[in-house]
């Protein structure tokens, strides 16, 4: 739920660095602009959900998808000043390969005065087989 974060004037990296949770998860803003965002999250043993296999917990992937979606909303040309998640649905297609960085690609494909609609895809190093996909509705503050 990113909110009230200025990305227009700020350096691109500053956005994610300002969010304590994103910092704790080592998320990196790779690309942003025009209603799209790319955020990556390196594998880390703290993120593991299954200690036997080392697969990242679904909740960690959800956090990445949510963050990336919020950044995409804020980067929309209509320039909303703040946003927050209203609803988020995530489909998990397969477990992320342990040890690999997970990268989320989000697109804010429609924006009204009050609501932003977002799709986000998460992949690991095997880009052809997505790990998870999400669709969400975000609050728009003018």
């Amino acid at each position: 739920m990113p909110d009230k974060i200025e990305i227009r004037g700020a350096g691109k990296r500053r956005y994610i660095d300002e969010l304590p949770f994103c910092r704790a998860m080592n998320m990196v803003l790779e690309k942003v602009g025009d209603g799209t965002a790319v955020v990556s999250m390196p594998w880390n043993d703290r993120l593991v959900g299954d200690p036997v296999t080392g697969v990242v917990h679904g909740g960690a992937v959800s956090s990445l998808l949510d963050t990336c979606g919020g950044v995409a909303v804020l980067s929309h040309p209509a320039m909303p000043s703040a946003t927050a998640t209203l609803n988020f649905r995530i489909d998990y297609m397969r477990p992320a390969t342990p040890g690999q960085t997970i990268t989320a690609h989000a697109t804010c494909y429609h924006l009204t005065r009050t609501v932003a609609f977002v799709r986000t895809l998460a992949t690991d190093e095997d880009r052809a087989n997505p790990v998870a996909m999400a669709t969400g509705a975000f609050v728009v503050q003018a």
Binding site: M1, P2, K4, L19, P20, F21, D66, T67, A84
Partner: peptide
């Protein structure tokens, strides 16, 4: 915390 200004929990 997701938003340090409010502050609010991160949606994730």
């Amino acid at each position: 915390v997701g938003n340090p200004e409010l502050p609010a929990l991160h949606g994730g």
